[in-house]
């Protein structure tokens, strides 16, 4: 709703959606980008709203396909997320599941240079058709370095 309030609300359909409300919902589900709203981007009378929206949606630009953001500056590299992730456990029962470093490349999270990095994000339980709201990497993080948008 916050996004909708800042959109032009003219239902111009230039983005391909029938209403601005539908466009706002698709922004959240990452099917559209804010830059697809041509009137907002080009018309100077929406400049204030445009700046607010760009600032509000900035974290989404840094996020991966699943909306995963890892804040390098906060990460301790403890690897709690690597061991707690159910996909890592299933894909690497001899490594990540028992607390060791990953022994294969099928894992989603691993620690490189002291900071956790994500790969194979398509395997994440928050991704794909049967996605669920999994928090297994967020809850064990002692520094709040992982979030999803």
């Amino acid at each position: 709703m916050e996004i909708y309030q800042l959109l032009p609300k003219t239902n111009c359909k230039e983005c391909g959606e029938s209403t601005c409300m539908a466009f706002a919902v698709k922004i959240i589900s990452r099917e559209h980008g804010i830059k697809e709203c041509t009137p907002l981007m080009e018309d100077s009378k929406y400049a204030a709203e445009k700046n607010k929206l760009l600032e509000m949606l900035k974290p989404m630009e840094d996020a991966g396909e699943t909306g995963l953001i890892i804040h390098d500056d906060k990460c301790f590299g403890c690897g709690n997320c690597v061991v707690a992730c159910p996909v890592n456990v299933a894909n690497d029962p001899e490594g990540a599941a028992i607390g060791d470093g990953p022994s294969n490349d099928k894992v989603i999270l691993k620690v490189v240079d002291g900071v956790v990095v994500a790969q194979n994000v398509g395997e994440c339980r928050r991704f794909g058709k049967n996605r669920i709201l999994c928090n297994a990497c967020i809850d064990p993080c002692p520094s709040g370095a992982i979030e999803f948008v």
């Binding site: 301790f76 590299g77 403890c78 690897g79 620690v111 240079d113 002291g114 900071v115």
Partner: peptide, 15 residues
């Protein structure tokens, strides 16, 4: 040039 599996303390120590 890179450490794998080491935490931030370990990475700083080695690199």
């Amino acid at each position: 040039v890179h450490t794998y599996n080491a935490c931030r303390k370990g990475a700083a120590f080695f690199m």
